[in-house]
Design a protein around this nucleic acid. Structure first.
Lengths: 158, 158
DNA sequence: TTAACGTGGATAGTTTCTATCCACGATAGT
DNA sequence: ACTATCGTGGATAGAAACTATCCACGTTAA
Protein backbone atom coordinates (compact mmCIF):
# COMPACT_ATOMS: atom_id res chain seq x y z
CA UNK A 1 0.00 0.00 0.00
CA UNK A 2 1.69 3.12 -1.08
CA UNK A 3 0.93 6.69 -1.75
CA UNK A 4 1.89 8.54 -4.90
CA UNK A 5 5.23 10.28 -4.60
CA UNK A 6 3.50 13.34 -6.01
CA UNK A 7 1.87 13.88 -2.64
CA UNK A 8 5.21 14.78 -1.10
CA UNK A 9 5.91 17.24 -3.88
CA UNK A 10 2.49 18.80 -3.60
CA UNK A 11 2.69 19.25 0.16
CA UNK A 12 6.07 20.92 -0.02
CA UNK A 13 4.77 23.14 -2.79
CA UNK A 14 1.85 24.22 -0.63
CA UNK A 15 4.23 25.08 2.18
CA UNK A 16 6.27 27.19 -0.22
CA UNK A 17 3.16 28.87 -1.60
CA UNK A 18 2.14 29.75 1.95
CA UNK A 19 5.32 31.81 2.19
CA UNK A 20 5.23 33.41 -1.24
CA UNK A 21 4.15 36.98 -1.88
CA UNK A 22 2.70 36.38 -5.33
CA UNK A 23 2.07 33.67 -7.89
CA UNK A 24 4.84 31.08 -8.16
CA UNK A 25 5.24 29.35 -11.52
CA UNK A 26 5.70 25.59 -11.91
CA UNK A 27 9.24 25.95 -13.18
CA UNK A 28 10.26 27.80 -10.03
CA UNK A 29 8.70 25.21 -7.72
CA UNK A 30 10.29 22.37 -9.66
CA UNK A 31 13.74 23.94 -9.61
CA UNK A 32 13.47 24.70 -5.91
CA UNK A 33 12.62 21.10 -5.06
CA UNK A 34 14.83 19.47 -7.65
CA UNK A 35 12.00 17.55 -9.29
CA UNK A 36 10.68 17.13 -12.80
CA UNK A 37 9.02 20.30 -14.03
CA UNK A 38 6.62 18.66 -16.44
CA UNK A 39 5.51 16.04 -13.98
CA UNK A 40 5.12 18.48 -11.12
CA UNK A 41 2.87 20.46 -13.42
CA UNK A 42 0.45 17.54 -13.43
CA UNK A 43 0.25 17.50 -9.65
CA UNK A 44 -0.21 21.24 -9.44
CA UNK A 45 -3.07 20.90 -11.88
CA UNK A 46 -4.61 18.36 -9.54
CA UNK A 47 -4.35 20.86 -6.69
CA UNK A 48 -5.89 23.45 -8.96
CA UNK A 49 -8.81 21.22 -9.93
CA UNK A 50 -9.35 20.44 -6.24
CA UNK A 51 -9.58 24.16 -5.53
CA UNK A 52 -6.62 24.21 -3.16
CA UNK A 53 -4.63 26.58 -5.33
CA UNK A 54 -5.60 29.20 -7.86
CA UNK A 55 -3.68 29.52 -11.08
CA UNK A 56 -2.86 32.68 -12.97
CA UNK A 57 -2.19 32.12 -16.63
CA UNK A 58 0.05 34.13 -18.85
CA UNK A 59 3.19 36.04 -18.06
CA UNK A 60 4.00 36.50 -14.35
CA UNK A 61 1.45 33.81 -13.69
CA UNK A 62 1.74 30.85 -11.38
CA UNK A 63 0.02 29.41 -8.37
CA UNK A 64 -1.21 30.88 -5.11
CA UNK A 65 -2.98 29.20 -2.22
CA UNK A 66 -6.72 29.67 -2.41
CA UNK A 67 -7.19 29.74 1.34
CA UNK A 68 -5.16 30.79 4.35
CA UNK A 69 -2.43 28.26 5.14
CA UNK A 70 -4.10 27.45 8.45
CA UNK A 71 -7.22 26.42 6.55
CA UNK A 72 -5.49 23.96 4.23
CA UNK A 73 -5.16 20.50 5.73
CA UNK A 74 -2.78 17.74 4.78
CA UNK A 75 -5.81 15.57 4.11
CA UNK A 76 -7.05 17.89 1.37
CA UNK A 77 -3.71 17.74 -0.41
CA UNK A 78 -3.50 13.97 -0.13
CA UNK A 79 -7.01 13.57 -1.46
CA UNK A 80 -6.35 15.96 -4.31
CA UNK A 81 -3.19 14.24 -5.51
CA UNK A 82 -3.61 10.64 -4.44
CA UNK A 83 -7.32 10.38 -5.04
CA UNK A 84 -10.23 10.14 -2.62
CA UNK A 85 -10.85 6.39 -2.94
CA UNK A 86 -10.33 4.31 0.19
CA UNK A 87 -7.31 2.02 0.21
CA UNK A 88 -9.37 -1.02 1.11
CA UNK A 89 -11.96 -2.04 -1.43
CA UNK A 90 -14.48 -4.62 -0.29
CA UNK A 91 -15.36 -6.99 -3.10
CA UNK A 92 -18.10 -8.70 -1.10
CA UNK A 93 -16.51 -12.09 -1.24
CA UNK A 94 -18.98 -13.15 1.45
CA UNK A 95 -21.48 -13.28 -1.40
CA UNK A 96 -19.32 -15.73 -3.35
CA UNK A 97 -19.03 -19.48 -3.29
CA UNK A 98 -21.27 -22.30 -2.10
CA UNK A 99 -21.98 -20.72 1.29
CA UNK A 100 -22.65 -17.21 -0.03
CA UNK A 101 -24.44 -14.86 2.30
CA UNK A 102 -27.84 -13.98 0.84
CA UNK A 103 -28.09 -10.39 -0.44
CA UNK A 104 -30.65 -9.49 2.23
CA UNK A 105 -28.01 -10.25 4.89
CA UNK A 106 -25.62 -7.86 3.18
CA UNK A 107 -27.33 -4.53 3.61
CA UNK A 108 -24.68 -3.55 6.11
CA UNK A 109 -21.05 -3.48 5.06
CA UNK A 110 -19.25 -6.61 6.19
CA UNK A 111 -17.28 -6.54 9.42
CA UNK A 112 -13.94 -6.57 7.67
CA UNK A 113 -14.88 -3.57 5.56
CA UNK A 114 -16.16 -1.77 8.64
CA UNK A 115 -12.90 -2.31 10.50
CA UNK A 116 -10.86 -1.17 7.52
CA UNK A 117 -13.05 1.90 7.08
CA UNK A 118 -12.64 2.80 10.74
CA UNK A 119 -8.86 2.57 10.45
CA UNK A 120 -8.83 4.74 7.36
CA UNK A 121 -11.04 7.24 9.12
CA UNK A 122 -8.51 7.42 11.94
CA UNK A 123 -5.83 8.06 9.33
CA UNK A 124 -7.87 10.78 7.66
CA UNK A 125 -8.66 12.43 10.97
CA UNK A 126 -5.00 12.60 11.77
CA UNK A 127 -4.21 14.17 8.42
CA UNK A 128 -7.13 16.56 8.72
CA UNK A 129 -5.66 17.84 11.97
CA UNK A 130 -2.48 19.10 10.34
CA UNK A 131 -2.50 22.35 8.39
CA UNK A 132 -0.02 23.79 5.93
CA UNK A 133 0.53 26.60 8.44
CA UNK A 134 1.64 24.08 11.04
CA UNK A 135 3.95 22.40 8.57
CA UNK A 136 5.46 25.76 7.74
CA UNK A 137 5.94 26.45 11.44
CA UNK A 138 7.72 23.11 11.67
CA UNK A 139 10.18 24.18 8.99
CA UNK A 140 10.91 27.36 10.90
CA UNK A 141 11.54 25.33 14.02
CA UNK A 142 13.74 22.77 12.31
CA UNK A 143 15.72 25.00 9.98
CA UNK A 144 15.50 28.40 11.61
CA UNK A 145 13.51 31.56 10.95
CA UNK A 146 15.83 32.73 8.18
CA UNK A 147 14.82 29.80 5.99
CA UNK A 148 11.70 31.41 4.61
CA UNK A 149 13.41 34.77 4.32
CA UNK A 150 15.91 33.18 1.97
CA UNK A 151 13.08 31.47 0.16
CA UNK A 152 11.22 34.71 -0.47
CA UNK A 153 14.39 36.32 -1.73
CA UNK A 154 15.04 33.43 -4.09
CA UNK A 155 11.49 33.58 -5.38
CA UNK A 156 11.79 37.33 -5.96
CA UNK A 157 15.09 36.94 -7.80
CA UNK A 158 13.44 35.00 -10.62
CA UNK B 1 -3.23 4.70 -2.47
CA UNK B 2 -4.57 1.24 -2.42
CA UNK B 3 -4.18 -1.97 -0.58
CA UNK B 4 -3.66 -5.31 -2.25
CA UNK B 5 -6.90 -7.16 -2.86
CA UNK B 6 -5.22 -10.18 -1.34
CA UNK B 7 -5.65 -8.62 2.08
CA UNK B 8 -9.39 -9.10 1.89
CA UNK B 9 -8.95 -12.73 0.91
CA UNK B 10 -6.44 -13.35 3.68
CA UNK B 11 -8.61 -11.79 6.37
CA UNK B 12 -11.64 -13.82 5.40
CA UNK B 13 -9.48 -16.94 5.33
CA UNK B 14 -8.28 -16.23 8.85
CA UNK B 15 -11.87 -15.88 10.02
CA UNK B 16 -12.69 -19.23 8.43
CA UNK B 17 -9.62 -20.85 9.95
CA UNK B 18 -10.70 -19.58 13.35
CA UNK B 19 -13.82 -21.67 12.97
CA UNK B 20 -12.27 -24.82 11.51
CA UNK B 21 -11.58 -27.96 13.48
CA UNK B 22 -8.50 -29.02 11.55
CA UNK B 23 -6.24 -27.98 8.71
CA UNK B 24 -8.04 -26.39 5.76
CA UNK B 25 -6.39 -26.76 2.35
CA UNK B 26 -5.99 -23.89 -0.09
CA UNK B 27 -8.40 -25.41 -2.60
CA UNK B 28 -11.17 -25.48 -0.01
CA UNK B 29 -10.61 -21.86 1.02
CA UNK B 30 -10.53 -20.74 -2.59
CA UNK B 31 -13.72 -22.58 -3.49
CA UNK B 32 -15.47 -21.23 -0.42
CA UNK B 33 -14.64 -17.65 -1.27
CA UNK B 34 -14.93 -17.98 -5.02
CA UNK B 35 -11.40 -16.77 -5.73
CA UNK B 36 -8.42 -18.04 -7.69
CA UNK B 37 -6.90 -21.08 -6.01
CA UNK B 38 -3.37 -20.56 -7.30
CA UNK B 39 -3.29 -16.90 -6.41
CA UNK B 40 -4.80 -17.41 -2.99
CA UNK B 41 -2.02 -19.92 -2.38
CA UNK B 42 0.48 -17.10 -2.66
CA UNK B 43 -1.28 -15.06 -0.02
CA UNK B 44 -1.58 -18.01 2.33
CA UNK B 45 2.14 -18.54 1.94
CA UNK B 46 2.64 -14.95 3.00
CA UNK B 47 0.59 -15.60 6.11
CA UNK B 48 2.64 -18.72 6.71
CA UNK B 49 5.94 -16.89 6.36
CA UNK B 50 4.64 -14.23 8.73
CA UNK B 51 3.91 -16.94 11.27
CA UNK B 52 0.19 -16.22 11.43
CA UNK B 53 -0.78 -19.66 10.17
CA UNK B 54 0.93 -23.01 10.30
CA UNK B 55 0.90 -25.27 7.30
CA UNK B 56 0.68 -29.03 7.23
CA UNK B 57 2.07 -30.56 4.08
CA UNK B 58 0.96 -33.74 2.44
CA UNK B 59 -2.40 -35.44 2.41
CA UNK B 60 -5.04 -34.05 4.78
CA UNK B 61 -2.79 -31.05 5.14
CA UNK B 62 -3.75 -27.40 5.00
CA UNK B 63 -3.60 -24.34 7.19
CA UNK B 64 -4.45 -23.69 10.82
CA UNK B 65 -4.15 -20.49 12.82
CA UNK B 66 -0.96 -20.39 14.84
CA UNK B 67 -2.49 -18.40 17.67
CA UNK B 68 -5.91 -18.03 19.25
CA UNK B 69 -8.23 -15.93 17.08
CA UNK B 70 -8.37 -13.27 19.78
CA UNK B 71 -4.61 -12.89 19.53
CA UNK B 72 -4.50 -12.32 15.77
CA UNK B 73 -5.00 -8.69 14.83
CA UNK B 74 -6.10 -7.24 11.55
CA UNK B 75 -2.85 -5.30 11.47
CA UNK B 76 -0.78 -8.47 11.44
CA UNK B 77 -2.67 -9.79 8.45
CA UNK B 78 -2.39 -6.53 6.57
CA UNK B 79 1.32 -6.34 7.25
CA UNK B 80 1.84 -9.94 6.20
CA UNK B 81 0.03 -9.61 2.88
CA UNK B 82 0.42 -5.97 1.96
CA UNK B 83 3.90 -5.49 3.31
CA UNK B 84 5.17 -3.54 6.30
CA UNK B 85 6.44 -0.50 4.43
CA UNK B 86 4.74 2.80 5.20
CA UNK B 87 2.55 4.26 2.48
CA UNK B 88 4.32 7.60 2.55
CA UNK B 89 7.98 7.54 1.58
CA UNK B 90 9.91 10.68 2.30
CA UNK B 91 12.47 11.36 -0.41
CA UNK B 92 14.03 14.24 1.48
CA UNK B 93 13.30 16.77 -1.19
CA UNK B 94 14.17 19.45 1.36
CA UNK B 95 17.77 18.47 0.62
CA UNK B 96 17.31 19.17 -3.09
CA UNK B 97 17.61 22.31 -5.13
CA UNK B 98 19.37 25.63 -4.68
CA UNK B 99 18.02 26.19 -1.16
CA UNK B 100 18.67 22.65 0.11
CA UNK B 101 18.64 22.19 3.84
CA UNK B 102 22.12 21.25 5.02
CA UNK B 103 22.43 17.61 6.16
CA UNK B 104 23.07 18.64 9.76
CA UNK B 105 19.62 20.24 9.83
CA UNK B 106 18.08 16.97 8.67
CA UNK B 107 18.78 14.68 11.58
CA UNK B 108 15.11 14.74 12.45
CA UNK B 109 12.56 13.54 9.92
CA UNK B 110 10.97 16.48 8.15
CA UNK B 111 7.64 17.81 9.38
CA UNK B 112 5.73 16.39 6.46
CA UNK B 113 7.13 12.92 7.06
CA UNK B 114 6.35 13.21 10.78
CA UNK B 115 2.73 14.12 10.10
CA UNK B 116 2.33 11.31 7.62
CA UNK B 117 3.92 8.85 10.02
CA UNK B 118 1.58 9.94 12.80
CA UNK B 119 -1.43 9.37 10.56
CA UNK B 120 -0.24 5.94 9.58
CA UNK B 121 0.36 5.12 13.21
CA UNK B 122 -3.25 6.04 13.95
CA UNK B 123 -4.29 3.71 11.15
CA UNK B 124 -2.16 0.90 12.45
CA UNK B 125 -3.42 1.36 15.98
CA UNK B 126 -6.96 1.06 14.77
CA UNK B 127 -6.18 -2.14 12.88
CA UNK B 128 -4.24 -3.52 15.83
CA UNK B 129 -7.33 -3.12 17.96
CA UNK B 130 -9.39 -5.53 15.90
CA UNK B 131 -8.89 -9.28 16.27
CA UNK B 132 -9.96 -12.16 14.08
CA UNK B 133 -12.16 -13.30 16.98
CA UNK B 134 -14.02 -9.99 16.87
CA UNK B 135 -14.45 -10.24 13.13
CA UNK B 136 -15.84 -13.75 13.55
CA UNK B 137 -18.22 -12.45 16.19
CA UNK B 138 -19.32 -9.82 13.71
CA UNK B 139 -20.21 -12.49 11.19
CA UNK B 140 -22.31 -14.30 13.78
CA UNK B 141 -24.10 -11.04 14.54
CA UNK B 142 -24.70 -10.15 10.91
CA UNK B 143 -25.53 -13.55 9.46
CA UNK B 144 -26.71 -15.53 12.46
CA UNK B 145 -25.18 -18.21 14.66
CA UNK B 146 -25.95 -21.00 12.18
CA UNK B 147 -23.50 -19.52 9.67
CA UNK B 148 -20.42 -21.10 11.16
CA UNK B 149 -22.24 -24.35 11.85
CA UNK B 150 -22.90 -24.64 8.14
CA UNK B 151 -19.31 -23.69 7.46
CA UNK B 152 -17.93 -26.44 9.67
CA UNK B 153 -20.22 -28.95 8.02
CA UNK B 154 -19.12 -27.85 4.58
CA UNK B 155 -15.47 -28.09 5.59
CA UNK B 156 -16.03 -31.58 6.98
CA UNK B 157 -17.84 -32.76 3.84
CA UNK B 158 -14.70 -32.34 1.74
C1' DT C 1 4.56 41.07 -31.15
C1' DT C 2 6.82 38.26 -28.04
C1' DA C 3 8.06 35.65 -24.12
C1' DA C 4 6.21 33.55 -20.04
C1' DC C 5 2.85 30.46 -18.22
C1' DG C 6 -1.07 27.10 -17.15
C1' DT C 7 -3.97 23.32 -19.50
C1' DG C 8 -5.16 19.12 -21.49
C1' DG C 9 -4.09 15.31 -24.49
C1' DA C 10 -1.10 11.85 -26.24
C1' DT C 11 2.53 8.80 -25.40
C1' DA C 12 5.81 5.63 -23.34
C1' DG C 13 8.79 3.49 -19.81
C1' DT C 14 8.75 1.42 -15.30
C1' DT C 15 6.94 -0.80 -11.51
C1' DT C 16 3.50 -3.28 -9.03
C1' DC C 17 -0.43 -6.18 -8.87
C1' DT C 18 -2.85 -10.11 -10.40
C1' DA C 19 -2.81 -14.61 -12.02
C1' DT C 20 -1.26 -19.03 -13.78
C1' DC C 21 1.66 -23.04 -14.29
C1' DC C 22 5.05 -26.30 -13.01
C1' DA C 23 8.60 -29.05 -10.61
C1' DC C 24 9.48 -30.49 -6.14
C1' DG C 25 9.20 -32.48 -1.59
C1' DA C 26 6.17 -34.03 2.14
C1' DT C 27 2.38 -36.84 3.93
C1' DA C 28 -1.22 -40.33 4.73
C1' DG C 29 -3.80 -44.03 3.18
C1' DT C 30 -3.89 -48.31 0.30
C1' DA D 1 5.93 -49.36 -2.59
C1' DC D 2 2.38 -46.69 -4.79
C1' DT D 3 -0.69 -42.98 -5.27
C1' DA D 4 -3.49 -39.04 -4.51
C1' DT D 5 -3.33 -34.95 -1.80
C1' DC D 6 -1.13 -30.77 -0.43
C1' DG D 7 2.18 -26.80 0.58
C1' DT D 8 6.45 -24.36 -1.52
C1' DG D 9 9.10 -21.69 -4.49
C1' DG D 10 10.33 -20.21 -9.07
C1' DA D 11 9.25 -18.73 -13.65
C1' DT D 12 6.24 -16.35 -16.46
C1' DA D 13 2.93 -13.09 -18.37
C1' DG D 14 -0.90 -9.90 -18.74
C1' DA D 15 -3.17 -5.82 -16.57
C1' DA D 16 -3.13 -1.71 -14.16
C1' DA D 17 -1.11 2.20 -11.95
C1' DC D 18 2.62 5.29 -11.43
C1' DT D 19 6.15 8.20 -13.35
C1' DA D 20 7.64 11.07 -16.83
C1' DT D 21 7.93 13.67 -21.15
C1' DC D 22 6.36 16.31 -25.09
C1' DC D 23 3.37 19.19 -27.67
C1' DA D 24 -0.42 22.18 -29.29
C1' DC D 25 -3.21 25.61 -27.45
C1' DG D 26 -5.08 29.67 -25.12
C1' DT D 27 -3.91 33.45 -21.88
C1' DT D 28 -1.48 37.26 -20.11
C1' DA D 29 1.73 41.16 -19.42
C1' DA D 30 5.54 43.85 -21.07
Amino acid sequence: MKMSAGVEWAVHCCVVLSQADGPVPTARLAELHGVSRTYLAKHLQQLSRAGLVRSTEGRDGGYVLTKAAAEVSLLEIVKAVDGPEPAFRCTEIRQNGPLASPPEACRKACGVARAMAAAEQAWRSSLAGVSVAELAAGVTEDSGPETFVGLREWLAEG
